[in-house]
């Protein structure tokens, strides 16, 4: 089980705040998930059809999604045959290994594409109510902390109060907001924002957009136009198109990701509200079925709780108990608390 040993060594030697954030933010997911797994192993001594059916349910219950789960179960069944596993305790490490494999696509770039010279434009897209505006406020804070000049563009001209909401964030973080009146053309707001950010020699321009359901063709076309206007004004831009997804969303998250990718060429995902859900499994489904890296995760309501996604951190946060049991260090850990 070298994978877990490696993970464990990495994270027990460094108890930095990021690891803590991941551990805390994922506490709910982990508690329910590990609890269920332990119950499963206690209930089924041998690995049979029923065992797999139960496992299937646990995974689906974590919003991993039917097709990813079926795929995983098939792989596990093969593995069981191959290694001639009969006892349920023997399969435990195999399960976590497989899950980790699916989460941790090596070589994937979860870093934000930030320009060394000149302005970086980040466009935020997503359905209604996922937390786009809040995310932008937090991202603005993140860059502000690094002494960057940040400008925000109030591109949600549709929802009542959206511009005001971004303005409050602007004041809170100390960042300028470019806006027009409610109801105006969002593409025009972007045009203004780019001019204004240029004049201010800003490093980062964060563009808010109105939430839209992915099956609304006209609204998706509007988004295309917004992106087009940005690219016209600044040929390389937007450097990042971040799709904001709500972690409590079920299988529709996949449909959202697919459609938004088709229209705006999404470069990364921001997964919000991960702390509130016992699920988080949608991360697995997204990473398994789509080729879009998760770049940021929202692990709490605080302004600092938006973190860069780290697959290893995520796996550790999720399987902490399993990892520690697996490497035989679980008890020690209990005592030291």
């Amino acid at each position: 089980m070298s994978f877990f040993k490696k993970l464990k060594e990495k994270f027990t030697t460094q108890t930095d705040s990021v690891t803590e954030k991941f551990k805390e933010g994922l506490a709910k997911t982990r508690d329910s998930f590990v609890g269920q797994m332990n119950e499963l192993f206690a209930q089924y001594r041998s690995v049979d059809e029923e065992f797999f059916e139960e496992l299937e349910e646990i995974l689906i219950g974590a919003d991993v999604g039917v097709s990813t789960v079926l795929e995983l179960i098939d792989e596990l069944k093969d593995e069981v045959k191959l290694r001639n596993i009969k006892d349920s305790t023997e399969i435990a490490p195999v399960i976590s290994e497989k899950l980790a494999e699916k989460l941790d696509k090596s070589g994937e770039d979860t870093e934000l594409n930030i320009q060394k010279d000149g302005m970086t434009v980040i466009l935020f897209v997503g359905v209604n109510g996922v937390g786009k505006t809040t995310t932008i406020g937090k991202v603005a804070h993140f860059f502000k902390e690094q002494d960057k000049t940040v400008v925000m563009a109030a591109g949600d001209t549709f929802r009542a109060g959206a511009i005001e909401q971004l303005e409050v964030w602007g004041e809170r973080v100390g960042v300028d907001v470019v806006k027009q009146q409610a109801g105006s053309d969002p593409a025009a707001v972007m045009y203004d924002a780019i001019q204004s950010a240029r004049a201010k020699q800003a490093d980062i321009l964060l563009c808010d957009t109105a939430g839209r359901l992915q099956n609304k063709v006209n609204l998706m076309k509007e988004l295309e136009k917004v992106k087009r206007v940005i690219s016209r004004e600044l040929p390389e831009a937007p450097h990042e198109v971040l799709l904001v997804l709500d972690a409590t969303t079920g299988q529709n998250a996949l449909s959202q990701a697919k459609t938004f990718q088709e229209t705006t060429d999404v470069s990364g995902i921001v997964l919000t509200k991960l702390d509130g859900t016992a699920r988080g499994g949608i991360v697995l489904a997204i990473r398994n079925e789509l080729d879009i890296p998760v770049k940021l995760v929202g692990l709490g309501e605080g302004i600092e709780d938006l973190q860069q996604f780290d697959a290893e951190q995520f796996v550790y946060g999720l399987f902490k108990e399993l990892v520690e049991e697996d490497t035989g260090a679980g008890e020690e850990d209990e005592e030291s608390r």
């Binding site: 406020g137 929802r159 009542a160 109060g161 959206a162 005001e164 909401q165 303005e167 409050v168 964030w169 809170r172 409610a182």
Partner: peptide, 15 residues
């Protein structure tokens, strides 16, 4: 709590 949530409802009221 949410920034501008009151504005949002007031705008709806105006509409």
């Amino acid at each position: 709590y949410r920034p501008a949530a009151i504005d949002q409802l007031e705008t709806l009221g105006k509409q």
